[in-house]
């Protein structure tokens, strides 16, 4: 067995997995606060990436300004979506809420297609494309940077959840009737979680845009990140990180060995099998709260 190849596949899989995890974290944030599985999460990543491009290409801002500007814009968009689309559905059956997020997904894809066209655009972060050798392993600089940022986002969230505002958000996700009973602004908390998810989506959009270009296919990240979120347990942030690395490694290693045999395409298969097996065998995921199943 070629250990260098195996390690290379695993290491690259792990960093890619952390990039999935960044999107999965957004899904988890929204699910935790409001029990809404956000099917528009992939579209939010795409819109975030387009927002960065809009600020840099249309307004001529340098990248280091365009990214924070896009994050501010997405913060507002997240609040707006919750306020005008989701809040009205409070108390409706979950299927209606799912349909709403699906509708948002189609809407966001449609509106970006109209505004930016269908051709892929470059997202230039100024990170060199030159290969980087870690020992004998070949790695991508963009992926590595993105993985580091994903871990930083996770750390920032862990710290945030210890602040008073963060504690209130956890209280809401724990029991919203009790939250109401002690005067916690449940609606504002849910809006904040949407805003945070949209901001994190922007960061994910920046790195995924740099990896594969900015076009409609960014919204397909939903499938992989949803798998990561479900595998980690829909309501667990550490679960999203662990599951992200796990799925990334699995996908990369399995397809690395299988693709030459079957002629490609086994990547998607790994993701699909993981999702199906998780739902069948362990619906609350690796770290999820068992009681979540009730929802």
């Amino acid at each position: 067995m070629d250990w260098i190849l195996f390690l290379e596949l695993a290491a690259n899989g792990a960093v890619t997995g952390l990039l999935y995890a960044m999107v999965a974290i957004s899904i988890v944030l929204i699910f935790k606060s409001s029990a809404v599985p956000n099917l528009a999460q992939g579209a939010l990543v795409m819109v975030g990436a387009y927002a960065v491009l809009a600020f840099s290409d249309w307004l001529g801002l340098p990248m280091w300004l365009a990214i924070p500007a896009a994050m501010v814009f997405m913060f507002g968009l997240g609040i707006g979506i919750e306020r005008h689309a989701l809040r009205r559905l409070a108390g409706q059956p979950i299927i209606m809420i799912l349909m709403m997020t699906l509708g948002l997904d189609i809407f966001l894809r449609g509106i970006t297609l109209a505004a930016f066209g269908g051709s892929a655009r470059r997202m230039d972060l100024g990170i060199s494309d030159d290969p980087l050798f870690v020992g004998q392993i070949l790695m991508s600089r963009v992926h590595l940077t993105g993985a580091a940022v994903a871990l930083m986002v996770f750390a920032a969230l862990v710290l945030f959840f210890r602040t008073r505002r963060g504690i209130r958000l956890r209280a809401i996700s724990n029991d919203y009737v009790a939250s109401w009973s002690v005067g916690i602004g449940v609606e504002q908390g849910v809006a904040l979680s949407w805003a945070l998810a949209a901001v994190i989506s922007t960061i994910a959009g920046v790195f995924w845009g740099a990896v594969q270009g900015v076009d409609q296919s960014l919204s397909l990240l939903l499938l992989k990140s949803l798998t990561v979120a479900v595998l980690g347990g829909l309501d667990s942030l550490p679960g999203a990180i662990v599951a992200g690395i796990l799925l990334g490694v699995l996908e990369s290693v399995v397809s690395g060995y299988l693709d030459p045999l079957v002629g490609g395409g086994s990547r998607e298969l790994v993701v699909a099998v993981t999702l199906i097996l998780t739902v069948l065998i362990r619906p609350h995921g690796l770290f999820g709260d068992r009681s979540v199943e009730r929802i």
Partner: peptide
């Protein structure tokens, strides 16, 4: 209806007026 996943202290902090 305590916030089961929070500690005792966090339960109390969560109820503090903003």
């Amino acid at each position: 209806h305590v916030f089961e996943q929070l500690t005792t202290n966090e339960n109390l902090e969560a109820a503090c007026p903003v």
